[in-house]
Nucleic acid binder design. Structure first.
Length: 885
DNA sequence: TATCTCACG
DNA sequence: ACGTACGTGAGATAG
């Protein structure tokens, strides 16, 4: 009996590339997608021992019927993979495995698989396993054909035979087509019958067997269901047809060509080295291949579960501890529960339940040890651990290395900075993802002690294993100083700001909410009246129908799913109908109410009336911080109505004040410094209004001739410059034609020639190096700068221009924060730093320190980093955040 | 969970 | 011809 493995290449490649977080190696290849594919192949070869093997692709193109690829174009959470450039590598990989590949003009992978499985069914001496991510394939199952459907990306498969399909769905394989016919499949653009999901479809099929059966018995159905079935009968028939896999294509391959003879070790080894699959290279030992990885020997780690009786044993080895892991559950460490600690000393890992740390005299020494600065331990995510420990009254100190922070600096766009991901990247022993051990989200569960201690010990061992290689990488990227003198100390500064929190006047906030509520109600009624009907104003879909169908207003632009109703569109429609103004006002007020009144109130601690934001130090690709739970970096200010919210942020003690200090034009000053543009530098050296100065130079007029419109346009150009200018972007912003925008830009560059040179040079440099850096050597890789796709490449070019500017500004304020923290301590001031908003710092200060702080804060901020132009910080204070403007 | 919208620098 | 300004987080809807 022969055994054939048939892989649906398009569906599996789709899952490998899109369902996983994206990792790239040094050549910009998405290694984890390729790695996933590789481990799947290895597993199949080992477990199934196939005699025949084929991977089928859609003909001649990398197309997925799924919509996700298009979404990457506009997505901002992940960098779009240049799949067309990755795909050939995937094919090379398959070739180095010695596996046959097949595509045929005019046919899809489905058709190839459908036809081959039919032939196998007919011949009777060929057993087939079809591997796909697509449940459609289940229709092909038979005595001879089993269908493996991937789960969790592609790391696991579930093998379906007709019996399992019967068990799961109560259907025979052929009825899968009928199932799709009734329920449809959005990802495949199969409509089915609207409103019929899997549950209903199965019920109908159990009763009537096929789509035709259901349709001919439609009169037996009841109510809504009957209407839908009758109305969409044609859609159901067509959907069934679409879901049916074609099984009769003319095949140009013979069985002989599918015979699998195994892979050639050296060939596969070379491929793995190219892809930097270090752990696989080590594990598989390709004889005849050269240059095995330089991985540290795997230490055999002993696990000790510490209980009351064994605390002394642990205390005795504390001086030898080199790595520490503190497991904090949940997304928000301010609410986080610590479930356990793992300490690594030599080749022994000690697991300590956190309850043991919190109470009892025996563990007082352990607490002292956590708090002593006189130690040097490595951790993963010091910031998070420090917050959680602070709430338990323990002040963590003595952290000398943080694997998360190091991973972020080495690649700030990396989304897989999980410890398990870092371990894999550095070829350390595989580590289960936290999700696998704990579950995720609300379903979070603490596993039994044996499993927990084992997992935490694996983690702390991984941390230990990461120290040396990551330090080497930081060193070779010249990010040593950035790491040790800026980011690592900053983690502690952030933790103390967050733990301190900021006081919220909840009574005033509720009062404001009540006023908003009354006004919103009035407006909603006015809108319903004008529209002649009630509808859900918060639904863009319903609003779109009212505006563009009922009221017949002209659609301005479309979104992927329908009419756009955003503020830009509504402003254009405002003259056409009086209701539009009301809707815009409603939007403003509703945002204030839901996000800033209700949302903020949910985050206030009832015991103290404070909110404690959580700054994430390892998210933003440019080096900025981000703020969550609540986000205090987007509190309204531009419109007076929203700005009032700032009145509820007050000092935590009577008689104190809120003091704010913000950098003036920090990004343009940074640009002046790095571009060394003469005119730009001159403007800042002479402390001129930069937008006025730009207007003077671009329009060639005297200062007295610059009107407000010229200044506004100059300001937009300056923003554009910082963002990585494009004529299209500027034209949108200024509402002018693209041609005029292009002329503006050209005029700007004619005057600010140093800026033009910087923009050209930085893009060129990014092309050569593959990355750009900030003044402090923070690095961002831009693999897509070489993409052939215009959009991807243009995006990378703008990023190359913007990141050094935005990133250096981030470096500077971070430096100021660390220095400010030191100064407050050194000068023994009672004032406290509370918030950072990208170019602004917020403090609370006692009355008698206001004058001191008004001098000290700007002084520290302005001298944080010496540039060739002066830095300027404006300071103000008041009874609340609103007054301190 | 994806999409749209909108708040900030 | 391509069709976006750079960087974030959060709330509501809809499927």
């Amino acid at each position: 009996m022969s055994k054939l493995i048939l892989i649906d290449g398009n569906s599996i490649a789709y899952r490998a590339f899109f369902a996983l977080p994206l990792l790239s190696n040094s050549s910009g290849l998405h290694t984890n997608a390729l790695y996933g594919f590789t481990t799947m192949l290895l597993k199949l070869l080992e477990e199934q021992k196939p005699t025949h093997f084929l991977i089928a692709f859609d003909a001649g193109k990398v197309t997925f019927r799924h919509t996700q690829y298009a979404e990457y174009k506009g997505g901002r959470s992940k960098t779009p993979p240049e799949l067309s450039e990755q795909f050939p590598v995937l094919k090379d990989l398959i070739r180095s495995f010695g596996i046959a590949q097949y595509e045929q003009e005019g046919y899809e992978a489905d058709d190839i698989i459908g036809t081959l499985t039919r032939l196998a069914d007919e011949s009777g001496d060929m057993e087939v396993i079809v591997v796909s991510g697509d449940k459609d394939m289940l229709q092909l199952a038979s005595d001879k054909v089993k269908i493996a459907i991937t789960r969790k990306g592609i790391s696991e498969v579930e093998l379906h035979d007709p019996a399992l399909i019967k068990e799961k769905y109560g259907l025979v394989p052929k009825q899968i087509i009928d199932l799709k016919g009734l329920m449809g499949d959005t990802s495949d653009n199969i409509p089915g019958i609207p409103g019929v999901g899997e549950k209903t479809a199965l019920k109908l099929l159990h009763e009537y067997e096929t789509v035709e059966g259901v349709l001919s018995h439609a009169d037996e159905l009841k109510g809504k269901m009957k209407e839908k079935v009758v109305e969409h009968a044609d859609s159901a028939r067509m959907s069934k047809e679409l879901a049916t896999i074609f099984r009769n294509m003319p095949l140009e391959k013979t069985w002989d060509e599918l015979v699998y003879q195994g892979y050639d070790g050296p060939t596969l080894g070379t491929m793995f080295r190219k892809l930097e699959f270090k752990s696989l290279l080590e594990k598989m030992d390709f004889s005849g291949s050269e240059g095995a990885g330089d991985l540290p020997p795997k230490a055999d780690i002993q696990t000790v579960e510490v209980d009351d009786n064994r605390v002394d044993e642990l205390v005795a080895v504390l001086p030898q501890v080199t790595a520490l892991h503190i497991e904090v559950v949940g997304d928000n460490p301010h609410h986080g529960e610590i479930i356990g600690l793992a300490l690594l000393a030599g080749d022994t890992c000690y697991y300590v339940p956190f309850a043991l740390v919190q109470q009892g005299e025996a563990s007082a020494k352990l607490r002292d040890w956590l708090e002593t600065a006189d130690k040097s331990v490595a951790v993963y995510d010091q910031h998070r651990a420090e917050i959680a420990l602070a709430w338990a009254g323990i002040h963590l100190r003595g952290v000398s290395f943080d694997a998360l922070l190091a991973g972020y600096l080495l690649d700030p766009t990396e989304s897989a900075l999980w410890l398990s991901g870092l371990a894999a990247k550095y070829g350390l022993p595989t580590l289960p993802a936290d999700e696998e051990v704990f579950g995720k989200g609300a379903k979070f569960k603490v596993p039994e002690t044996a499993i927990l201690s084992e997992h935490l010990c694996r983690k702390v061992t991984a941390i230990q294993g990461l120290i040396e290689p990551m330090k080497r990488d930081l060193e070779s990227n010249e990010m040593h100083q950035l790491f040790y003198e800026l980011e690592l100390p900053l983690a502690g500064v952030l933790a103390s700001m967050e733990k301190k929190g900021i006081q919220v006047d909840t009574a005033a906030l509720k009062q404001y909410g009540a006023e908003l509520g009354a006004e919103i109600e009035r407006i909603v009624n006015a809108i319903y009246e004008a529209a002649g009907t009630e509808f859900n104003l918060n639904s863009p879909k319903q609003l779109g129908e009212i505006l563009f169908e009922k009221l017949q207003l002209p659609p301005v632009k479309k979104t992927k799913t329908g009419y756009s109703t955003d503020a830009e569109v509504l402003e254009k429609l405002e003259p056409h109908h009086p209701v539009i103004g009301h809707i815009l006002l409603y939007r403003t007020l509703a945002k204030l109410q839901s996000t800033y009144v209700e949302g903020l109130l949910k985050e206030v601690r009832p015991e103290t009336g404070k909110v404690h934001t959580y700054y994430k130090q390892t998210i933003a690709a440019t080096g900025r911080l981000s703020s969550q739970y609540p986000n205090l970096q987007n509190i309204p200010i531009r419109l007076e109505e929203g700005r009032k919210i700032r009145k509820v942020f007050v000092p935590s003690q009577p008689g104190w004040s809120i003091l704010t200090a913000d950098y003036s034009q920090i990004e343009l000053r940074v640009l002046a410094h790095i571009s060394q543009d003469e005119r730009l530098m001159e403007a800042f050296v002479n402390n001129m209004d930069i937008h006025t100065k730009t207007a003077m130079d671009v329009f060639g007029v005297a200062e007295s001739e610059v009107d407000s419109n010229m200044r506004r346009q100059a300001k937009a150009v300056n923003f554009g410059i910082v963002y990585g200018i494009s004529d299209y972007g500027l034209s949108q912003n200024l509402n002018i034609t693209r041609k005029d925008a292009a002329a503006f830009i050209e005029q700007y560059f004619a005057v600010f020639q140093g800026v033009r040179k910087y923009m050209d040079d930085i893009v060129q440099k990014a092309r050569e190096d593959g990355y750009v850096t900030t003044l402090l050597q923070r690095r961002r890789y831009l693999p897509e700068i070489k993409a052939s796709n215009f959009n991807l490449r243009s995006f990378a070019e703008r990023t190359a221009m913007n990141t050094p500017i935005q990133g250096t500004a981030a470096d500077i304020i971070k430096l100021a924060m660390v220095q400010m923290d030191e100064r407050l301590k050194k000068e023994k001031l009672r004032s406290r730093m509370l918030l950072q908003v990208h170019d602004e710092l917020v403090f609370e200060v006692p009355e008698d320190e206001i004058e001191t702080m008004k001098v000290l804060v700007p002084q520290v901020m302005e001298s944080a980093l010496k540039l060739d132009v002066p830095l300027k910080a404006d300071v103000d204070s008041g009874l609340n955040w609103y007054e301190a403007k």
